[in-house]
Design a protein around this nucleic acid. Structure first.
Length: 215
DNA sequence: ATCCCGAGGG
DNA sequence: CCCTCTGGAT
């Protein structure tokens, strides 16, 4: 995509959704962090279903530690990978209590040190909680970036670096959400709905995708 | 490279 | 059935 196409790409997505937010439900930054950890390889809908009751009683890392690993498992049993996630959430909560006064650090390097938190999760928290210009390259953004030609790369990190270079300044904070929503609802993995895509004319894989659907 | 692991959709 | 869903740790 040309520089002008990229600007137009985000201009349109921004116009359709002026104030994009994560679809994960949370009441504070700590709950956001937990929700994002739970969302790995899971849908937001599924995570929200589990956290609704959990976050009613657990609002701080100290309360999570008090709940305990087995107690947490009862809440998140319906989410994939729940054993590893329960262990990580308890462990990271213990660290927040012991080392950060129960607060979530506004620092990516510190976040990545927490168990269960990788670069992608840290980037989501930095963006959603602290308004940082970070790009959390998940399955959606990786696919949309490569498919459209906006940000091509063989690894999520490579795509992230491309986005940092190519996303125009006015869209850097919102780009993460716009790309996620676009990937989730229109540029879907299996059946991209190009016929109702607002940026189809800017996409280099349009013909390929439409042809594939015809088969 | 492989394992963790459940719900919903096509 | 098989694929996908805002991955991370080993």
């Amino acid at each position: 995509m040309t520089k002008a196409d990229i600007f137009e790409f985000f201009r349109r997505l921004a116009e359709l959704n002026p104030a994009p937010e994560t679809e994960l439900e949370f009441g504070n930054t700590y709950q956001l962090l937990v929700a994002v950890v739970l969302s790995a390889q899971a849908t937001d809908v599924g995570v929200n279903k589990a956290t609704r009751a959990l976050f009613h009683s657990v609002k701080t890392p100290a309360q999570m530690v008090a709940l305990g690993e087995d107690g947490l498992k009862q809440h998140i049993k319906t989410i994939g990978l729940f054993n590893a996630k329960a262990r990580n959430v308890i462990a990271l909560s213990e660290i927040l209590v012991a080392q950060y006064g129960g607060e979530v650090p506004a620092d990516r390097d510190a976040l990545v040190e927490l168990p269960g938190v990788g670069r992608k999760t840290a980037n989501v928290v930095m963006n959603c909680a602290f308004g940082a210009e970070t790009f959390a390259v998940d399955t959606h953004i990786f696919r949309v970036g490569n498919r459209t030609g906006l940000a091509k790369g063989k690894t999520p990190l490579a795509v992230e670096k491309q986005l940092e270079k190519k996303v125009p300044a006015p869209f850097r904070v919102g780009a993460h959400h716009w790309l996620i929503l676009h990937g989730r609802y229109i540029c879907k993995a299996r059946t991209p709905e190009c016929w109702r895509c607002p940026v189809v004319d800017l996409c280099r894989f349009k013909d390929k995708v439409l042809e594939k659907r015809g088969k």
